[in-house]
Simulated assay, not measured.
Amino acid sequence: MVPPRLSDVLQGGAKGTVREKGAIELDDLDGVHLALKNPEAVAEGTRVQVNSRGSACTSLEEVKRRKREKKAEKFLKARERRQKRKEARQEAEAFWDQYDIPFEYDVAIKGRRSGLLRGSSGTGRDSSTVEHLYVLEAFEDGRLSRPEGVYLCNNEANLRFDDGERRQDENGESFIPPVTCQTCLDRMERWKWRTKSEGRDEKY
């Protein structure tokens, strides 16, 4: 006869001790013993955890080892994410350090309707989305001029996402990502510094 509390006890992984002939004595059910399929597989006296179905068990040492490994894996993944965010900020700072842009600007994307549909990222992005230089202040520079509130490349966009793109570094602080639109980059060349031996004092 199956004890009425057995399924509840097994639900969270019941602990017990292997006794003679592979009988598992459960901690939370006096007088209830489960039997190992292979009595010789686990030594008598071994502390074990029985799975929810009661069909297999794992030594508590093995359970602890797996928990340690899982914790270490989470730590390593978190450290890797922090390192990537740190490197992303360093790359962004190095990118913007190349330029002396003579007007107020930001970085924005051109939204895609496909990026808002069910099953998408919900951010308005898709695989072809790039970051654009967004003009916040009207300017004229030779033959190139723009009013405020437009993308530097062109102002065609299915959805205008002009709030400004931001990323977070390893400390949770936000930063402006680099421009990745090739047309914007081509037009930004005029504001790029040319490094000379005496310092950054000329532009391309």
Rank of each mutant, 00 (worst) to 15 (best):
M1Q: 15
V2R: 15
R5I: 12
R5W: 12
D8A: 08
V9K: 04
L10I: 03
G13W: 13
K15F: 14
K15E: 11
G16W: 11
T17N: 00
V18M: 02
G22N: 02
E25Q: 11
L26C: 00
D27M: 12
D28V: 02
V32L: 06
A35M: 02
K37S: 15
K37D: 14
P39S: 02
V42S: 05
V42Q: 05
A43F: 11
T46G: 01
V48N: 02
V48K: 05
Q49D: 05
N51G: 05
N51V: 10
S55Y: 12
A56P: 06
C57L: 14
T58L: 09
S59M: 01
L60C: 04
K64H: 08
K64G: 01
R65A: 06
R66S: 05
K70L: 10
L76R: 15
Q83D: 11
R85M: 09
R85W: 11
K86R: 15
K86L: 14
E87H: 05
E91W: 07
F95D: 04
W96M: 08
D97H: 14
I101M: 11
E104Q: 10
E104H: 10
D106R: 14
D106E: 11
I109T: 07
G115D: 00
R118W: 07
R118C: 03
S120C: 08
S120I: 07
T123A: 07
S128N: 03
V130I: 02
E131H: 08
H132D: 01
H132T: 01
L133Q: 07
Y134F: 15
L136Q: 10
G142D: 04
S145E: 01
E148D: 11
G149R: 10
L152S: 04
L152E: 01
N155E: 04
N155V: 05
E156T: 07
N158L: 11
D163Y: 11
D163H: 11
E165R: 14
R166H: 06
R166L: 07
D169R: 03
N171E: 09
E173M: 05
E173K: 08
S174V: 02
P177E: 00
V179A: 06
Q182G: 01
T183W: 04
T183D: 03
T183F: 03
C184E: 02
D186L: 10
E189C: 03
R190K: 14
R190V: 11
K192V: 09
R200L: 10
R200M: 13
K203E: 03
K203M: 09
